[in-house]
Amino acid sequence: MALDYEKEVVTVIVCISMFFMTIAILLVVFFYLSRKKLIHKELEKKNLEIEMQNELIKAVIVTQEEERKRIAQDLHDDISSKLNVVGLNGHLLKTPNLLPHELEEITNNIITLNNKALENSRKIAHNLLPPVLEKFGLEAGIRELCLEFESGKTLIIDFIQETIIEQDLNRDLHVFRILQELLNNSVRHGKASKVKIKIDKTKEGYCCHYHDNGVGFDVNKATHQKGLGTKNMASRVQYLNGELIINSAVGEGITVYFTF
């Protein structure tokens, strides 16, 4: 009788023990699977980040190459060609028995071409790094940029600056380039006639609101999302540790918000 009781209790003990063991195993399996899932998600996130960074790097390289091509073309068309003609005129000066009016014509040519080459070289240098940005800061740089675009008489720009921006050439140049890209797009693709730019202060730094009344585009279309200009702007904003939001719809212009 006592043995039957002992046998029964032992069975209960063994069953409870196995029950707890099973719970422990299930908990371990649960932890293991959760860990696997979390690591998988983290890996996916990292891969996505790497992919995005690669795309940005690619965009930067392509932009850099295009910029180099443009500078090379500017140098070739505006400076080299003119200096060639100056050289030719210089050789003409060596021609014996030149009449005074011929001499004067050649000299005038050399002076005119030299002035033009000098002016063009200034323009190229200005495009590479606007001097006003370095000397007077971002506000003056943007105002000059607005004047340049408004000189075409097709665009009216309303620039509002609500705060004083501390000068930081590296940051200012990126902001300037972003606005330059936006204005170029508004004129070239958006056919806009009015643009509003507003710079304000935020808790972390500054923000810029940009709006035009152009034709706009569908932001959900991949071609617009992955355009070189957009990628270039995104990489600049990312470099400034900011945030970039682009909103647009067909016929409603474009609204861009970025922080820096």
Binding site: I13, S17, M21, I23
Partner: peptide, 17 residues
């Protein structure tokens, strides 16, 4: 974890057995 869970009952029943 498995050992502590499973052996707990055995240790607790030591006085009875």
């Amino acid at each position: 974890l498995m050992y502590v869970c499973a052996s707990e009952v055995i240790y607790l029943s030591a006085n009875i057995t």
